[in-house]
Design a protein around this nucleic acid. Structure first.
Lengths: 208, 208, 208, 208
DNA sequence: GAATAAACGAGACGGTACGTCGCGTCTTTAC
DNA sequence: GTAAAGACGCGACGTACCGTCTCGTTTATTC
């Protein structure tokens, strides 16, 4: 959704001001995140916001995309357990900060705003995709059975953070992250994410 | 927030009509679920809705409570794996149907409506509580290590369904449910949910 | 377009406040007659205006209707000349005051607002209709030829006031009104408004 | 407001395109006649319109001026009646066609746009001025009393066309034009437009 | 024939008003 | 005397034009 046009022009200024204002209002809890308020906080006319984004969710989507483009180090410690732990701690710090609010806001808007749904899905598709290599390496090292569905494993690892954040509402501390990582590692090692047709083989090999 | 009064009075009739209308609009996708629309569909004045509930979320909360009060059979097959699988299949059928929509709607409202958050949390606290016995039995049978945190395990089991439903948006089929159950069982068996203070002991025992 | 409902209720209060505010803003030249400003001046929410009237023109239409319902004495002096003169002076005082502004505003909106056009037409249809009796009496007295089209005569009499008001913009003084009346009387007496088929007869009689 | 510069340059081309587009949109009823739409229809940027004209009304003013500069034959049949009839038929054809729409649009804008008011007044001042000679000749021929105010008579003649066009909205057919001419001729002949101070003389002469 | 100045296309911008929707409150009538 | 009917204040929505403003790109004169 970003327009871009000339980088140094007025366009860029307005765009930056709006995103910054949105970010501020997002952090300020109980700040009624509306288009009008964002525009006002950005010192920009409401019309200018609608010229660029179709929606409030469009703005938030761009914010989220900015985060998506920021560098996230994928851990590579040589062991599945510590890789997943590092990953879980990264997810935790992401979920408790600003992007967590963004995801919450967008996920809340998703049921009635297809674009919001698309943005948030795209964000996670990318994030999860990056993390899959961790599982792939474990398979290569023999820590995880061949045929392990990396995507499923990562989704399984990330899920509890969302449940807490969006539904349960309890705090997400480091211990929680470590426990989730441990569970994920155990499940991966036990072959719970091996693709169905291979399961029989794995089960068979496990019988010995 | 429900009033109740006398069961056969106007109160009861209005209440039933509103809940039925809300349920209908909830099932009809793209039906914009607003108080005014519900009142109209119920053949009732908007004021009558606000007399009984503080919010749209209040109505949905009552709807969810009705589901919460409906009987859910907790599986007891004698083995952890099949118990969790049954449980996961139950969760799946719950998430794909009407209560799934309810939870989605309430979870969406949660960030700006504390009561909605409370309702949805209460719902899950109860559901998860009921399911914990499954883990307890596994511990008793020796299938799971002593000190296993049943609540954490169940939360871990349920989480992927929410992620799919609220965020990722992919369909939740039986295979998905079975895989989640398998992962959960593996993690439980591996002791990933043993409480921290016992972890040292476990670690200690693992040292030998 | 007026709603009416209960006379002493809130409805009536809002309605009166809006009409009064509109009247005030109408008189204040350069006062940007908009719905929002009227609502603000009336101490009423914009929504309440739109609840009752579809348009700004709807409000003005009601104002005009109020004037239409106010009593206007139709002169009956016994002579066509003085009757028309009285009438012209009445039209003049109407055109130079508030209803003149109303008509101006509505006539301006008419080309793009059918309802405004309808209102202003209805207003004049009624006004002109009332004034026709003056011509009718003149015919009965023998001052005007039989078959005189009273409607056409009155339209002819009223027209110069509109031209001045809407187009030319010059002031409309008493002398102007008297001259218009004199011209109208002369035209009526000369049989200029006798229906076409009768014209030949009149012309014939005039030939002698 | 027209710039002109060199006749074959871009300026002239843009100017012509804009005026042509405006004329087209003016004829197409229900075409919303806005600056943006005109610019688009002209294949010209909005800025280019504003570079040349201050307003939409400025454009329409130029359009009207073009019509004003077009030749209008002032009838000279030798008799007042037929002169006025010819004139009325000319006015009719002008009012029912494109210039009628122009006048309507400009008259509608006049109350809030002084320049529009000025343009439309100027147009009529010129048109009426040209037509005055008809009355002057009638006076010279003895068909009308000396001292007849030609301007007033012509205004009186033209007025009913405006009333129909701007306010009443009924069609303007040839019969209407003829009747107006007849009424005008009768009023002129009867001395209704003789200047006030002369009225006494006329009245006196009429007394005999 | 190159330099230069004016006009142009493109389109973002601040601004005002529009008309709509939904919320939750409050009054009025009627049962 | 309670409750249904529905108007109300409120706030935000998203749209349409307005008239202004850069910012490159032609175009057409001028040297």
């Amino acid at each position: 959704m970003p327009v871009g046009s000339r980088p140094g022009g007025r366009s860029a200024r307005v765009r930056a001001a709006v995103l910054a204002a949105a970010r501020t209002l997002l952090v300020d809890r109980d700040a009624e995140l509306t288009v009008e308020r964002i525009a006002q906080a950005a010192g920009v006319n409401k019309t200018s916001v609608y010229r660029r984004w179709t929606d409030l969710e469009g703005v938030l989507g761009d914010l989220l995309t900015e985060y998506a483009n920021s560098y996230v180090p994928i851990p590579d410690t040589g062991r599945l357990d510590s890789d997943l732990e590092q990953l879980a701690l990264l997810v935790r710090s992401g979920m408790t900060g600003e992007p967590g609010d963004l995801v919450t806001a967008l996920a809340a808007a998703a049921p009635r705003n297809p674009r919001a749904a698309q943005v948030v899905r795209g964000f996670f598709a990318e994030r999860f995709g990056l993390a899959e290599v961790v599982v792939g390496r474990a398979v290569a090292r023999g820590e995880a059975p061949a045929g392990t569905d990396a995507r499923a494993a990562i989704e399984f690892l990330g899920a509890p953070f969302f449940l807490r954040r969006l539904v349960v509402g309890e705090p997400i501390d480091e211990q929680f992250a470590r426990r989730v990582a441990a569970a994920g590692a155990a499940a991966v090692r036990a072959g719970a994410f091996v693709a169905p047709r291979d399961v029989s083989i794995v089960d068979g090999s496990r019988a010995f």
